[in-house]
């Protein structure tokens, strides 16, 4: 199992993804954003950070990096791609996932442990989780306020593309448990096929108990199990 971690100028969670993957017993190597091929990887990760300083708009410039054509091709072939935080924003900007990201309603950056509820266990990233399960992952962002127009929103709900929602201790997706104002408390969405996931919480920061929790490992393990099972969508 080998993760390919795309490094954009300004990515800063790239090394953390590698650390978490290795701690879980998987391989992980970096892919420089100027690369035009992404061969030899089982899953691509677009990590968190501030690609191109998030200047102009978060992830607006990164989506034009040369590597993105190869990422799109990799995804189109049915293999798993996960965008975390800034990586999620890149996938939105690139049109690989529906919606857009606004500033948090507090207008402040927010870094804390956050409960999220699993909505769909049918994706490659959630095989080892069950619908309704509440897990805790760190969030750290200033622009994680998920937005889509009502038509798009209805469509992704209908197709079961909402993978995670912000929630409280008992799994309720309440306004109080919504850290950033996201519509429908949405914390993560996937494409229609299910092999491209974007999520604001950071699974790589919760890969080991010593860092405060290991729920994030379940997501890495899910992809690994799916890949080892020969999984490919489409």
């Amino acid at each position: 199992m080998k993760f390919g971690v795309v490094v954009f100028p300004g990515s800063n969670c790239d090394r953390d993804v590698q650390t978490a993957a290795r701690a879980a017993g998987y391989e992980a190597d970096f892919i420089w954003h100027a690369a035009t091929a992404v061969d030899g990887f089982d899953c691509l990760v677009l990590p968190g950070g501030f690609s191109y300083g998030d200047y102009l708009r978060t992830a607006a410039i990164a989506r034009f990096s040369p590597v993105m054509a190869a990422v799109a091709e990799f995804a189109a072939s049915g293999r798993p791609v996960i965008g975390i935080c800034n990586g999620f924003q890149v996938l939105l900007e690139a049109g690989m996932l529906p919606g857009a990201m606004l500033k948090n309603t507090s207008c402040r950056f927010l870094c804390k442990a956050q409960r999220i509820r699993v909505e769909s266990a049918r994706t490659p990233f959630t095989l080892k989780l069950r619908p309704g399960q509440v897990i805790t992952l760190p969030i750290a962002h200033g622009e994680g306020n998920y937005y889509a127009d009502s038509e798009t929103l209805a469509q992704i709900e209908r197709h079961g593309q909402v993978v995670f929602r912000y929630c409280n201790e008992s799994g309720g997706a309440t306004p109080e448990s919504n850290p950033n104002g996201s519509l429908g408390n949405i914390a993560g969405v996937c494409n229609e096929a299910g092999n491209v996931l974007g999520m604001m919480p950071h699974p790589e920061r919760a890969g080991e108990q010593i860092l405060g929790g290991a729920d994030g490992r379940l997501i890495l393990d899910s992809v690994a199990q799916w890949v080892q099972g020969g999984g490919r969508i489409g």
Binding site: N12, C13, R15, D16, T19, A20, G48, R108, F109, L110, C111, K112, P138, A140, H202, E204, R205, G207, L211
Partner: peptide
């Protein structure tokens, strides 16, 4: 909470 206190794993 305004500081990213976890990046770097």
């Amino acid at each position: 909470e305004q500081y990213d206190h976890q990046v770097g794993a």
